[in-house]
Design a protein around this nucleic acid. Sequence first.
DNA 1: CTTGACCCTGACACTGATGTCACACTTTAA
DNA 2: TTAAAGTGTGACATCAGTGTCAGGGTCAAG
Lengths: 114, 114
Amino acid sequence: MQIGELSRLSGASVRSLRYYEQQGLLGSERRSNGYRDFPDNAVATVQTIRSLLDLGLPTALVKDVLPCTVGERSESACPQLLERIAELRDDVRTKADRLATISDSLSEYLRTNG
Amino acid sequence: MQIGELSRLSGASVRSLRYYEQQGLLGSERRSNGYRDFPDNAVATVQTIRSLLDLGLPTALVKDVLPCTVGERSESACPQLLERIAELRDDVRTKADRLATISDSLSEYLRTNG
DNA sequence: CTTGACCCTGACACTGATGTCACACTTTAA
DNA sequence: TTAAAGTGTGACATCAGTGTCAGGGTCAAG
């Protein structure tokens, strides 16, 4: 399919799709006229990309994680990959906890001083 | 104290301190020679700023939260503030959960395909 | 008086994902 | 045939926080 259709189906902007392709997250053929031609499963791929980016994974990490989500044998060193994800998870978890503390203090502050 | 000393005591770069001041997070007097003069409690303030920024709060939000941490009566609408913090907390919590899921899947993937 | 350590302001670079604009080409519909 | 819609590339803008450099005061010790 063409990039416009993929954009509509995936919810990603055309600009973003071109960016994902440029960063190697998304493969595409080229037609004789130069237009990109994406396979049908690109819709699912793009949605995965977007959800991973939304979680705060950088593009490079998404690139490594992506093949694992498709079940493809990944050449990239996957144990380190797992480690980076786990680190990220722990970081985010810690932040959530600390934010909860702040939220509680703030709530308490408002109750007494607001 | 001068900015250099505050930098050493707080761990923030001189550049960052000037930025915090410019953004209204950090108050300072000026000496006759133009040098900034920070009060002693600025060290604690800066550390609070840094921890909040580290949590992902934008400068503007830190600016609103800050007075509450000092116990000062804040003029800014605090209930909305609490709401924003709570939202942020929930977002981060959700992300942590989803990252945990990814981490688990990835770990499983590695166990069977690695 | 000079040197070196501070400090000041202003400005530009960087990161990462995305928006947006310009300009050119292709395809499709009227 | 012509206009509109779609696509291509390239380049610049944005956000936020920080690094860094230039050019110029200030101050204390030698």
